[in-house]
Amino acid sequence: MGDFDFQVIIESLPFLFDGLLISFQLTFLALIAGLAWGTILAVMRIWGPAPLRWFSAVYVNIFRSIPLILVIFWFYFLVPLLIGRPVGNFTSALIAFSLFEAAYYAEIMRAGLNSVSRGQVYAGLAIGLSPRQNLQYVILPQAFRNMIPVLLTQAIILFQDTSLVYVVALSDFMTSASVVAKVEGRLAEMYLFAALVYFVICFSGSLLVKHLQKKKVA
């Protein structure tokens, strides 16, 4: 290990940076889509008629029971088949992540909505709010405040999970690092550097979550 080569890291920085952008892009888009679909699933589960409740429960439980890599493989195989023509691995990965994350966001949403006490629901109705107003002004604001730290934590997990697109050779940050590692024969440098970059980003994120949690308590 005496010959740790910083040069290889510096020279590959532009290439790695492009990879990092792909990782962020994938995280951001999957977060938005997953959150939207997850909210719909949660609302279906709590207030929907029986068939929708049932659908939501089955959906969430299936996606939460299988590995993300398998889901990535599923959609890498399935999406071109359904569309009838090849699509890029970014598209299939984005679909896989969105549908997969939605199952986790749905559970967070459901817990958040259920975390608002019945007393609060009654109190809102008792001062004369309509059920819809009660949802809008009393339940959702409280539920959302309770959820923010968990949602952020899940976003950090999602960002880490995007590294798994390595298995379909989508050139995110992780895949780019491993390409350089293999081409240059500098495995130790590249993987340790990748670990450091992920750590700095995710640790900063988790510090932010802690800060928000403290503010919530105060």
Binding site: Q160, S163, L164, M174, S178, Y191, A195, Y198, F199, C202
Partner: peptide, 11 residues
């Protein structure tokens, strides 16, 4: 907790 499992595995 703050390094993806895949990266840890490769390390």
């Amino acid at each position: 907790r703050n390094i993806p499992l895949l990266v840890q595995l490769f390390v």
